[in-house]
Each structure stands twice: as structure tokens, then as C-alpha cells.
Write a protein that binds this DNA or RNA. Structure first.
Lengths: 357, 357
DNA sequence: TATTCGTGAAGGAACGTTCCTGCACAAGAC
DNA sequence: GTCTTGTGCAGGAACGTTCCTTCACGAATA
């Protein structure tokens, strides 16, 4: 095994010359194609190995007409670039996307959420998965216009209009239904003043969850109690919670729709002199597995990052490889009711409320 | 603006034909090269736009001889694939790598930590950053053998021997020094029985931190109290802590070297009837920002994922673009002493210890 | 012996760019 | 009127593969 010398890389023709055969023979020998006797095949392989030959990936991609590379972009905090992978949800999405892509033989490129316009178009991508696109998302538009299939939500695809025709697939999340499910659960547990901590971006998730909450309040003629966070961060989130709980006639239930460490939140609430679930019912929208291990365990609203990503990749790959496949997939949330939002015992001891059977 | 029709993509020659000029002229007009009067340039650009022309990324990469794509692989839990981005450290590394790469005009591909051997070699990468390589890491070896520059730690590079000669750069972390710093801090705060929760993989971080702790114990003729976790996960980590604290002559200080939610850990310790820092000094190796907001705030040992990634990308890009640059960078840890490891007041009330001035 | 047939391998086009070279032509210098 | 100089553009090689086509040759068949 001689040390491969630096300098210009050894190419297919170099192997061919060294082995005394043609390019064709080398290519066939290494790729298991063509009609070659085992002897020739082995000889070529040996020469290739001894020269340290590695095929040029770019050249074979050009020839193949595809790159087997998928882009993934998480746009939620597009205004405050690059925080997203610190959040468990996005980390899990990215993980699951990569895993699913690998299973199909694709690699995954992390796309910038900001930067020089169009900079993403220089990347050799076969398809793109845009998570939580912002309104009139330029990334979605650009890729579709460039003929690169995109998976995003239906709204984003619709905004990109005609370009999306047959190279867009959707993965939708019924955020509104998820929020209503939780609010219904809290109402059944006896909550009358549900407060919400929400993100204030143009991302689909924030927009839809907020709207669902406001509408739910309107239907019940209740005053919404909502704290908006323009950017992620522990301190702003804790401040928001503190302020909500300090209000006159404080809330008797809290739903957090921003990423926040559940055990830390629980501890903060305790330090504010409230007890969960006795004084305050608590539900967190989070993927943090720590929520199951607190005392009491915290009810969570999860958004199935694994399943979502898997579906997105499947749709994308179907589209890329010319299979029919679905036009999209609709997901609902994963609500895990735990002790933090159970009806408190002290209420059970009260006289039964007349408003319910 | 006519809708670009599906079917075969519009190529450079198509634009040339439509504009009545040659390929050269189109290429020059769109790339701002050559000697062209403004009129021709604008005409070509207009035709290109109207046809919806987008240059083929793969073709220009082949021509350019590079792909402007960097791979990043986090190998720590290579045995239990794909959990890593759920951990704050790796998420931050990946984020920072992507950001730093983008600043240099590069994209980032997430590499699989497992999968069919060599599957990573089919990707068109200019360089690779391998975080926390395992022993005799095949990925490092393969890439170096294929002539792809790699940034990893010195040990991994040394193991890949001659291949690494001039296309490997190192980013080292003095994990041992970091651990000793924390242990020294705990000792000064009065700890006499420091227990450790450590990961049990072949990753550099786990190996070196564990060895440093064992050596530190040996130097002091103290019995090591160490719980090994073969895989990440909340429950196993909490179980390990519980078991350590339940031992006869329980530890008076705890250092966790696996990813674990700091507020959850603090709560668990409390539920076990111990109080931080009065009964137990606590330091967590974590990047979780929540550690600063608990009561008491938790001392943390951080590993500067942002700076490490930035340095790795800088080294890689230097290497790729033929600049001299450093051969490597050595990092030390970021230890933040907070109240969770402060000498408890009750000890200050004791008579001063004779062993120290 | 002439014809098919199968095997083994070479030649060269194609993928879609970029960029080097060179041609035609006009304007200015002599 | 010839000779330079410069401008505007076209032709074609090259990047490193894959794969389609062709061809030579020996064996089997008519």
C-alpha cells in the first residue's frame, strides 16, 4: 500500500492507464457493470486501490443528473438567525430529516435562514423541506421558480402560486386543532382563566396558534391573556410568565407555546408562590423529554417532529423519483395529559358545579 | 413573465439560442465577465429571466473543481445513531458550524454517524469537520484517504497516520484540564467525596474526562465514585444520580458529564432529600442556558461549541483555499462557578480547617 | 468454409457549465 | 492605403464521470 501522493487527484483515466485498459473497463469494473471476466475486474480494482483512486462525486452527479442532496430549512425565527437548532423541536426535525433522507440514499444540507438573497440557489439540491415557512416565503418561491421540488405547508405553496403546480408537496399541521384540544382539556379540568405565552413571529406555528387561542377566547367572551415573545430566550420567557401570574385575577392555567425548559418553568412558578396543579394548571408545547420526569409530570403538546420529517422526506423523494405518491399529509399534535393539568383534588372536594351535568 | 414550462430544464444553450447569441456571451452576461456592451448584457439577462433560466449547480461545481460544501459529523454516540442533535451541545456545534461556513460561502451537510460503510464518500464535499471522533475513526480515515481535508482532534489525525500529513488540521480540547479545574474548585469549596456521572462511549470527550477524574482520585488516594451511562436518556441519568446519592457515605459533590437538564437534576436531588449547595455541591457539564436561572443557579462547564466550530471551519477553509493558517487550535473549557458549588455558609461557620492557611 | 453468436473491451458522446483562444471588424496612427 | 489596437463575440476544450455504440475475435452452427 503506497502512500497516495498529494497534488492532482488520481482520476479514472489514471487508473485506466496504470491498468492498461480503457476508461470504460475501469468504470464497469468498479461499478459492477458491463460484461467483464472476474480476472479483469479484480485486476482493475487492485490497481485502483493501490493508486488510492476515489471517484469524483461532482462528476458522477453531473452525469447522473441528480445530487441526492436535500435541503432543510427551519424558518421560524428567520428574523433572529441561527437560533433554531438550539431548540429541541428543530433539533429533532433536523435529526429525523437526516435519518429519513439517509434511508432513501440522500444527504441533508442545512440551509441558512438568512444571508445574501438567493445564496441557497447555488447549492446543488434535488429538493427542499421548508419547516414553518414565513409569510410569502422567498425561499419557497425561489426554489419552486428554479424548478426544485419543495415540501412546505399548503399556505406557503399556495402563495408561490403557479410555480408550485406539480413540484410542491405539502405537510400541514393543524395547529389550531391542537391548541383547541389543550384549551378544551384545561376547561374540563376547571380552568377559567387560561393564559398563553406565544411567539411573535410570522411563522406559521406562531400565527396559527395565537389566532386559535384568540378565537377560542372570543367564542367564550373571555378576555385573552397572552404574552408575546418577539425572540426566543430564557429570561424573556420567564419574565413573561412572571408578569402573567402577577396580574390582578391571575390565570388559573398556563399554556406555553415557546420553547422553554419545563422543569425550569415549574420551578419558576413555584418560586412565584403558585403550586402546580393546585393553583395553576400547566401545559407546555415542547419536545423536551424532561417534562415527563418532573414532580408533578408536566402535560405536553408535542408536534411529532420525527413523523413530520419522515413524511416530508418521503413526499419529496416520491416527487423526485417520479412516483405518484400523495399530494400532502396532514398531522395533528401529540397531547400528553399529565398531572400538571389534572383537575386539582381541592376542586373535587367542592360542591359540584351546576353548569355541568 | 410567462410560466416556465415543466419538462427538461432550460439550459444555457437554450438561452443562447433564444437570445441569438453564443453560450459564451450568455455566460459572460450573467456572470458579469467578458467584454460586453451594456445593451447585450441586459438583453441576455432579460431573455434568461423570461425563460426562467437557472444555472445548473452541479455543472458549475464540476467546472469550478470544488463544491463549497462542508460535512459535519458528530460521532459521540456513534453506537446509538442520531440522537446527537437533540443534545444542546451538538445542536450548538451544528448551528455555529453552519453559520461560520456560510460566512465563508460554504454550505453544510449533516453526515450520518452510521450507515453503509463509505456512504459518506459519495457526497460531494470539500472538507469535513468531525466532532469528538471515536477511536480509530473510520470516517476520519476514509476522508483523509480520499484526499478530503478533515478537521478533528490530534489523536484522530494521528491515528489516520500518513494520510493526514498536510490535509488534516486539529481542534483539540483539553478535557482533562477542564475536569481538573472543576474538581479543584469543588475541593476548595470543601468537597471531599466528589461523584461523577459519565458517558461510556469511545468518544474522546467521555474517555478523557473519565480518565482525568480517575487520575485525580488516584493522586488523592480517594475512591472514585463514578456512574457510567452507556447511552443517553433522561431516566438512566436520573437513576444513576439516585444510586450515587443513595450510597453509604454519600458524595458531597456531584459533577455530571452527560447531557441532562440542569433544573430537572436539581429538582431530582431535592426530591432525594438533599439540598444544593448545603448538602451537595453541583456542577453540570452542559450548554443549557436554563442552568443560570435555577435557584440556586447551577455552576456549568461549557465546551464553547460556538468558538470550536468557528475555529474548525476557519481551519478547514484556510486549508481548502490554500492559505497557510495554523495547524490547529487548542481550546479550554468555560467554567462558570455559580451558587450551586459555592462553599455552604454552614461550613464557613465551622472552625477553620487546619490543613489550609 | 461461410455465417451467426457471444464475449471482452475500446471509442467517444453526453451531462451543463466556464474560460481560453481567436476571428472579424472598426477606429485610429502612420 | 497598410498596420496596429481594441472591441464584440463565437468556437471549442476542459472538468471527470457514465453509458451507448461499435468492433475484434474465437467458438459454435449451418
Amino acid at each position: 500500500m503506497s502512500t497516495p501522493d498529494r497534488g492532482p487527484r488520481v482520476r479514472l483515466v489514471d487508473v485506466a492507464r496504470a491498468a492498461g485498459v480503457s476508461k470504460t473497463t475501469v468504470s464497469d469494473a468498479l461499478n459492477g457493470a458491463g460484461r467483464l471476466p472476474a480476472a479483469t475486474r479484480e485486476h482493475v480494482q487492485k490497481v485502483a486501490r493501490s493508486l488510492g483512486y476515489r471517484p469524483n462525486a461532482t462528476a458522477r452527479l453531473l452525469r447522473a443528473g441528480h445530487t441526492r442532496l436535500l435541503g432543510v430549512a427551519a424558518r421560524e425565527y428567520v428574523e433572529t438567525p441561527w437560533v433554531y437548532p438550539e431548540l429541541a423541536y428543530f433539533a429533532q426535525i433536523v435529526t429525523a430529516t437526516t435519518r429519513a433522507a439517509l434511508a432513501h440514499g440522500y444527504g441533508v444540507v442545512l440551509l441558512p435562514t438568512y444571508g445574501p438573497d438567493d445564496c441557497w440557489l447555488d447549492m446543488p439540491l434535488d429538493g427542499v423541506f421548508v419547516i414553518d415557512p414565513v409569510q410569502a416565503d422567498p425561499m419557497v418561491r425561489d426554489f419552486l421558480a428554479a424548478g426544485v421540488p419543495v415540501v412546505a405547508d399548503r399556505r406557503a405553496l399556495a402563495e408561490a402560486a403557479d410555480q408550485a403546480r406539480d413540484i410542491g408537496r405539502w405537510v400541514d399541521f393543524d395547529y389550531a386543532a391542537a391548541v383547541r384540544q389543550v384549551l378544551g382539556h384545561l376547561e374540563e379540568a376547571g380552568a377559567e382563566r387560561v393564559a398563553v405565552v406565544a411567539g411573535a413571529t410570522t411563522a406559521c406555528f406562531h400565527q396559527q396558534t395565537t389566532r386559535a387561542y384568540l378565537q377560542w377566547c372570543a367564542e367564550r367572551r373571555r378576555e385573552p391573556r397572552i404574552a408575546y415573545l418577539p425572540a426566543p430566550g430564557v429570561q424573556p420567557a420567564l419574565d413573561a410568565v412572571t408578569e402573567l401570574l402577577a396580574a390582578p385575577a391571575p390565570p388559573d392555567a398556563l399554556l406555553t407555546l415557546v420553547e422553554l425548559s419545563p422543569p425550569l418553568l415549574l420551578d419558576t412558578i413555584r418560586r412565584l408562590g403558585r403550586s402546580v396543579p393546585d393553583d395553576l394548571l400547566l401545559v407546555c408545547a415542547t419536545e423536551d423529554p424532561a417534562a415527563r420526569y418532573t414532580d408533578p409530570p408536566i402535560s405536553t403538546l408535542g408536534f411529532l417532529p420525527g413523523q413530520t420529517a419522515q413524511a416530508a422526506v418521503d413526499l419529496l423523494v416520491d416527487c423526485l423519483e417520479g412516483r405518484a405518491g400523495d399530494a400532502g399529509r396532514l398531522f395533528s399534535a401529540d397531547f400528553q395529559a399529565r398531572a400538571s393539568s389534572a383537575p386539582p383534588a381541592r376542586r373535587a372536594a367542592r360542591p359540584p358545579r351546576l353548569t355541568r351535568g
